Computed example of a mutant assay.
Amino acid sequence: MSLASPSNSDDRPVLITGGAGFIGSNLADRLLSEGHRVRVYDALSRPGVERNLAWLTTRHGARIETVRADIRDEPELARAARDAKAVFHLAAQVAVTTSMVSPREDFEINGIGTLNLLEALRRRGEPVPLVFASTNKVYGDLADIDFVREGEAYVPTDAGMRAYGVGEARPLDFHTPYGCSKGAADQYVLDYARSFGLPAAVLRMSCIYGQRQMGTEDQGWVAHFLISALEGRPITLYGDGRQVRDILDVSDAVSAYLGAWALIGEVKGRAFNLGGGPQNAVSLRQLIAYMGALLGREVEVGYSDWRPGDQRYFVADTRAAEAAFGLGPKRPWREGVARLARWLASERRLNLDLDLGADPEPFPRAAAS
């Protein structure tokens, strides 16, 4: 198989660690629908992921193989990777809050688990494509960036950053144990490309949302907000709710992952920011206002202290990924959030009439100077 042109004519499986999770199950579904075999490697430790796995099995039958194991199980992981034609590494401890409580476990999963996978691929002695799911937390809390408040959102004073977002040239600055463990894994993947020729690339993700997301307060916050709003429960905002994120529909994230694999020969050894970009930037308050408009009622909100490592503003400059992978237009965030609301309501058997036409206050943007 050419590294630059993945083909389903090679019947070896694609390995997805964390393949029963939110992004992993969407990625697996796309690959299986395109005719690839998929091996899902997942400890099934996150509540609800069994439903994702059952959904995949029902849709695709024998073309999906499941290995229920922990990423820290080095021998089992090596067996799962032994014949994979490509690997997408999404298995991780994903919550900053959990890393503050159990930093050793956080590092063992994110740091040692990633090293286990890299060593398994290095020992194969052949170029196995690897795409790693990193995070925007590798850039720290961005405390040195000057912000102003415009309406319900923080925006940077620098016109270039307002127009394009945070680029890959931004210095790395790991905050919290989670930031350190994911940042270390990020750098190990890039170094294995340099030192051992592993065809690997890194995608530093902003906030991904969409169908099959089991949102909680600590991770998957867009779905968590929607679930709370749909069920009439209050949402707690940490800080003042004017912090801004660029949110990206999972279907667009999957396209980026597949693009990285398709062009791994050209992009190996590189890291790319992956997010919704400035056109999909929204503050927490603006998002909740839109949810209230969808539901036709106000969403109850409470406030608590800022959490460690929280960024007032993060919007990814996605131009490098778009150019490298040939990505098309992203799904607009209002459309994507409305679709997710409908899916969540259906999953919970809630009979709701959602107003797809409602818009919150638009996010303020400035042209680059």
Rank of each mutant, 00 (worst) to 15 (best):
S9H: 11
P13G: 09
V14R: 01
G19K: 07
A20K: 07
F22R: 05
S25L: 03
A28S: 10
D29F: 04
R30E: 10
L31H: 03
L31N: 05
L32D: 02
L32W: 08
V38Y: 07
Y41Q: 09
S45F: 04
R46F: 15
R46N: 09
G48K: 08
N52D: 09
T57C: 00
T57K: 01
H60P: 11
A62V: 14
A69N: 04
R72K: 07
D73F: 02
E74R: 15
E74F: 05
P75S: 07
L77D: 01
R79S: 09
A80G: 12
A81Q: 05
R82A: 15
A84G: 10
K85E: 11
V87R: 01
F88E: 01
H89S: 06
A91C: 10
V94F: 06
A95T: 15
V96C: 01
T97R: 11
T98K: 13
S99I: 04
M100R: 06
S102P: 00
S102Q: 09
I109M: 02
I109Q: 02
G111K: 10
N116W: 06
N116E: 05
E119K: 13
L121C: 09
R123A: 13
V128N: 06
V128Y: 03
V138M: 02
G140R: 13
L142R: 12
L142C: 14
A143H: 14
D144E: 15
R149T: 08
R149M: 00
E152W: 04
E152A: 15
D158L: 08
M161A: 02
M161R: 12
R162M: 08
G167M: 05
P171S: 11
H175L: 10
T176D: 03
C180I: 10
S181L: 11
S181H: 05
Q187R: 14
S195W: 13
G197N: 05
A201N: 02
R204Q: 11
R204G: 11
R204C: 09
M205R: 06
S206L: 06
Y209P: 05
E217R: 14
D218N: 10
W221Q: 11
A223K: 03
F225T: 04
G232F: 02
P234S: 02
P234W: 00
I235K: 03
G241C: 05
Q243M: 01
Q243N: 13
Q243I: 00
V244C: 13
V250I: 14
A256V: 06
Y257I: 00
Y257A: 09
I264P: 04
V267A: 11
A271I: 00
A271Q: 03
L274H: 02
G275A: 04
G277M: 06
L284T: 09
L287H: 03
I288A: 15
A289E: 15
A289I: 01
M291S: 04
L294S: 07
R297T: 02
V299T: 08
G302P: 00
S304G: 15
D305M: 12
P308L: 09
Q311Y: 01
A316C: 13
T318G: 00
A321T: 03
A323D: 14
A323F: 04
A324E: 01
G326W: 10
K330F: 12
W333N: 02
R334F: 04
E335I: 03
A338K: 01
A338C: 06
R339V: 03
A341G: 12
R342S: 10
R342A: 14
L344H: 04
L344D: 07
L350Q: 12
N351L: 13
N351R: 15
D353N: 07
L356G: 07
D359Q: 12
S369W: 01
